[in-house]
Design a protein around this nucleic acid. Structure first.
Lengths: 301, 301
DNA sequence: GCTAAACATGAAGCAAATTCATAATATTCA
DNA sequence: TGAATATTATGAATTTGCTTCATGTTTAGC
């Protein structure tokens, strides 16, 4: 029947203006055009849309149905057009974040809370599922920002530094290693290591310490939540290596100590990877600014 | 942004078929046309609808919004097109009935009940409001059928007879006039007449009897419902003139008698007026058939 | 019944969507 | 990694069909 939005707007205009000529004015076309238009629509639909017997053209029963359709559909279309204007102006958009580091939840949530206040129209989400090949997902626009500590040189992807952190050794204050001023790889040989349930390549303790030194802990135990890891450490079920800010922020138990890893400690840098073409988006730069400053505040607490 | 249904169908097809070429096949146009189409839409919307980085074209965030719009809107449009097909085939349509005679509710309801079983897609309604100029309303397609007892010769309007009825005199069996074998105009001079609350020109007792004889009843009392009129009559608050079928059907009280008006009684004929161009509609002829037979069954009860 | 208003119609012009032919790019598999 | 294949993009020519212009027909109101 070849209905078009034009027809819906026409039906609506004729009904509201009460006549072809006035509707034509409103739609900025001629009365003739409207006459042709509704005629061809009636021909194709095989249904009379207007009552011809009366002169200021009036809707028939079928015409009223079309009018109701128009009144339901047109506002939706206009809403979408407004939305797209928002995207175009950078006011709205999508910010789906993939995090490679499991502990990053800790500082990301407060940042996002702050962000959402400023950018209510931006669709924010965290996607923990695809933690492995997050960068390909970023290229394919499945996500819009990846938090990573390993910058790579990829086309159309920019890495911008967020903040530095120190992976620190955590143990119960009763633990023998708590006596040492710092720990080394060798110290883990007889320990139970508690980690997040992710691959070793994504755990600092392995990538920065144990794997290079070719040392294997006595056993490994996994826990999902930071609070649980600290609980296990405090009750002497093992030791852990966590970013400094995590240990400082979470005060669930004070029955543990932190020690640097190696004499001068480790330093790692966190990066945000985004697509180059979105680097200029106002909400994107605002997010990066927040993600650079908010976690630092936490570290100072 | 000049969105068209074409674009919505395109978005949906590309998403569901997973690629331009297959979508093009489904829509019976070339792959090139689709490519041009989405390009021009993206230009006008100022928003990327698809992710170009991957090869089987994938929807972007904005594209998904458009897809959701398409999935909400397109089924509605298809439903309306189906509905219009129904109108075209005569399976569905509108049957708004205006009744001039107030008592007609009594037989019309059962008829409509029966009718709705056979024609569920026809939009049925009774419009009592415009009882006066019902015929102009019929011409203007404000209603589709008028029940009237006065056929007129109007262009594009057809009157078809429904059934005959007899306006009869109703009084309490205790009433003096109950003794007479029939009543005449003169008998009303000292009576309280109970009527429906409508103008005299639409009451048989006036048009057929009192107005021609220039006789005025002692007083007139009005009641909306037939049952109430009969109740008042039975309790000797007045007398009434009602169609025979009403008195026979309603058995609320048996404490009244009916008498012919004038020695040989009155006979009136009810007509259905419809627009000539709708006389051939299948549901219309079915309704007329029902309206001719059903009330007769009631009269025989 | 006449006048003004409202709608319909036919031909011509024009803008926009589609097609055709071909180029550019991405993916796959060896 | 490179060749083969699949997928999308582009430009010019064509066609489609919407709109306008000019004018005819019908309706409403006095």
């Amino acid at each position: 029947m070849h209905l078009e939005f034009r027809h819906l707007r026409t039906i609506k205009a004729i009904h509201e203006e009460g006549g072809l000529a006035r509707a034509a004015d409103r739609l900025f076309i001629t009365q003739s055009a409207l006459s042709h238009q509704i005629k061809s629509l009636e021909d194709q639909a095989g249904v009379e849309l207007f009552v011809r017997r009366s002169k200021p053209l009036k809707l028939s029963a079928a015409g009223k149905k079309l009018l109701r359709l128009a009144e339901r559909i047109l506002p939706e279309v206009e809403a979408l057009e407004l939305d797209f204007e928002g995207v175009q102006s950078g006011r709205s958009g999508r910010l789906h974040i993939a995090i490679e580091c499991h502990a990053c939840f800790e500082w990301l949530f407060p940042v996002l809370e702050e962000f959402r206040k400023a950018w209510p129209d931006v669709d924010v989400d965290i996607r923990p599922g695809l933690a492995f090949d997050a960068l390909p997902a970023l290229q394919k626009e499945e996500v819009d920002l990846v938090v990573s500590s390993d910058p790579e040189d990829l086309r159309d992807i920019e890495f911008s530094p967020l903040f530095d952190y120190e992976p620190v050794f955590v143990a119960s204050s009763q633990h023998p290693l708590a006596q040492k001023p710092f720990v080394v790889a060798e110290d883990f040989r007889e320990e139970t290591l508690i980690t997040y349930p992710v691959e070793r390549t994504r755990l600092d303790v392995f990538t920065e310490l144990l794997t290079p030194a070719k040392i294997e802990p006595r056993s490994i135990r996994q826990a999902e939540l930071t609070a649980v890891i600290l609980l296990l450490v405090a009750s002497q079920r093992g030791v852990a290596v966590l970013p400094d800010w995590v240990v400082r922020e979470v005060k669930y138990s004070s029955d543990y100590v932190t020690r640097p890893i190696t004499k001068k400690g480790l330093t790692k840098r966190l990066y945000a990877a985004i697509r180059s073409d979105e680097a200029q988006l106002p909400y994107m730069s605002h997010f990066l600014r927040l993600a650079r400053t908010e976690p630092v505040k936490l570290q100072r607490m």
